[in-house]
């Protein structure tokens, strides 16, 4: 993890994953926090993703962002262990007082059919917190 200082803006503690198969980077973009996912994630990536989402959650609270964007457009697939890491993240946001909660936006690629099915399920899980964009 390293820190990036943006002129006139907040400092983001940046987390990245790069295993070759899976690449994840975080960035402050458009006034919010964005996490870009690329490649595919299997059970070997679960701990990394869970740890990264824990850091993202802490940074979102520290920076008091209104929304965190998870950019899945380059995400080819993830297995259920990694999917559960996202469920756990959403639960952590749900457990916050309403004033401290932030929204989660999933950017998806319509051509990747698994994303539509998975994101529909996730949106049903926490209707008030989650929105999806293509």
């Amino acid at each position: 993890m390293s820190a990036v200082e943006l002129p006139g803006q907040a400092t983001l503690e940046v987390s990245t994953i790069d295993t070759g198969e899976l690449r994840v980077r975080t960035a402050l973009e458009n006034g919010g926090l964005t996490v870009h996912f690329a490649g595919s994630a299997d059970s070997r990536s679960m701990m990394s993703i869970d740890g990264l989402l824990t850091k993202v959650h802490a940074e979102a609270l520290r920076l008091a962002v209104g929304e965190v964007t998870a950019d899945f457009r380059g995400f080819d697939f993830m297995n259920s262990s990694c999917f559960k890491a996202f469920v756990s993240w959403i639960c952590r946001v749900e457990e916050l007082d309403a004033a401290a909660q932030y929204k989660i936006c999933f950017l998806s690629d319509e051509a990747k059919h698994w994303q539509r099915r998975s994101l529909d399920a996730r949106k049903s899980f926490a209707v008030d917190l989650i929105r999806t964009e293509t």
Binding site: S80, S81, F83, K84, S88, C91, A121, F125
Partner: peptide, 28 residues
């Protein structure tokens, strides 16, 4: 679908395995 959502709630804090795989296959 409803059962899949139930599984998500139940397994959110589980530390060993996802507990979601088969429910996900059936629902998705």
């Amino acid at each position: 679908q409803a059962h899949y959502l139930t599984l998500m709630r139940r397994t959110a804090k589980r530390v060993d395995g996802s507990g979601l795989g088969l429910g996900r296959v059936r629902a998705e």
